[in-house]
Design a protein around this nucleic acid. Structure first.
Length: 330
DNA sequence: CGCCTTTGACCAGCGC
DNA sequence: GCGCTGGTCAAAGGCG
């Protein structure tokens, strides 16, 4: 079990960590917000994820400025560290509060479309790619081999599906991964990209299956996993791996106008988010102290964002941003 | 017809 | 070595 190849070393962590019910102790109030409201939150991480500067900046920030542990620490405390380092200790019971989001505090927008969700939290691991050193080479190979395989699968013999030659010893560079914790009623949040589901697995210790998605754009190897917190079904944990090599349809659609009309309430929520997210990078510096007191952290983050004159309905971002930004400490 | 989801099977890594 | 688990494949079927 611990042997989760991978994908994400912290996937288990995520499950357990994100799975912690709010109220455990500290900061986690995000889940309590908007209770029972089937609000549709349009989760537009696309801008965040597509090959935009933001993604790169963020990845870089996590990768170079902070260790995975620290990144994770943004949301929860120390126990996690070990997992990130390769141990799959269950941090359950840690009671640590995972949610560090500033509540969306009713930031739910009436105009928000159908995707339910509200609060979001981000975590990042192993952008550093170290972790993979020990495992999951499989993933590396697949990207490339997969292609070959399809061609090779000749023989109609395919008695068994997966009998492709896997190169051994090859390591694949771990792609930066980011996990979002979202309160949502739908598993697959709209993020502006097109995804194809390629698998679903039951997750140990969780009644909810984990779904595996792959970006349908050719040559784009981005993947994402979606699973629900087993402790709080209203929480969806979305983990992105890799970096889009293209722009999302949503972005293409309006990116050029964003800056000009960003403040317009006519913009779709996603655009608001995009704008905001793109403005964020400068704030990403280091996140020392992040692991201190989430509350403190969040509080310190709030002011910087206010300068953006966020639209009334930026609800989601409201939650996302604070979590994203490690810290902006002078 | 193309795209997507579902689903059972396979593989690799890890712990015991 | 065995069993467990996560991750992936690919056939089959559904849908627009």
């Amino acid at each position: 079990m611990s042997g989760d190849c991978g994908g994400f070393q912290f996937h288990d962590d995520l499950s357990s960590v994100f799975g912690q019910r709010p109220g455990g102790g500290g900061v986690s109030n995000m889940l309590d917000l908007q209770n029972g409201e089937p609000t549709g939150a349009f989760m537009s991480f696309n801008e965040f994820l597509h090959g935009s500067a933001y993604y790169s900046a963020l990845a870089r920030a996590f990768d170079m400025s902070i260790s995975p542990e620290e990144a994770l620490g943004v949301s929860y405390g120390g126990k996690v560290t070990r997992e990130v380092e390769g141990e799959s200790n269950n941090i359950n019971g840690g009671g640590g509060d995972v949610y560090s989001n500033v509540g969306s505090g009713g930031g739910v927008t009436p105009v928000t479309p159908v995707t339910p969700n509200s609060s979001v939290s981000l975590s990042s691991t192993e952008a550093a790619g170290d972790e993979d050193s020990g495992r999951c080479k499989k993933l590396d190979q697949q990207g490339e081999e997969k292609v070959e395989d399809k061609g090779d699968e000749n023989d109609g013999e395919k008695s068994k599906k997966v009998n492709k030659p896997r190169k051994k010893g090859e390591k694949r560079q771990r792609e930066p991964r980011f996990a979002f914790m979202t309160k949502s009623e739908v598993d697959h949040l709209e993020d502006g990209y097109r995804w194809r589901k390629y698998g679903q697995k039951a997750v140990k210790n969780s009644p909810y299956p984990r779904s595996y998605y792959r970006c349908t754009t050719q040559k784009c190897t981005v993947k994402k996993r979606v699973e629900r917190s087993y402790q709080d079904p209203t929480i969806v944990i979305t983990t992105y791996e890799g970096q889009h090599t293209h722009q999302s349809p949503a972005t293409l659609r309006g990116s050029s106008h964003i800056l000009a009309s960003a403040s317009s309430s006519a913009l779709a929520p996603s655009f608001h988010q995009e704008l905001l997210l793109h403005q964020v990078p400068p704030l990403i510096t280091t996140n020392q102290q992040v692991d201190a007191n989430p509350n403190m952290f969040l509080q310190s983050l709030q002011s910087p964002f206010q300068q953006f004159q966020l639209p009334d309905n930026y609800g989601l971002l409201q939650d996302i941003i604070p979590t994203f930004i490690p810290n902006n400490h002078p």
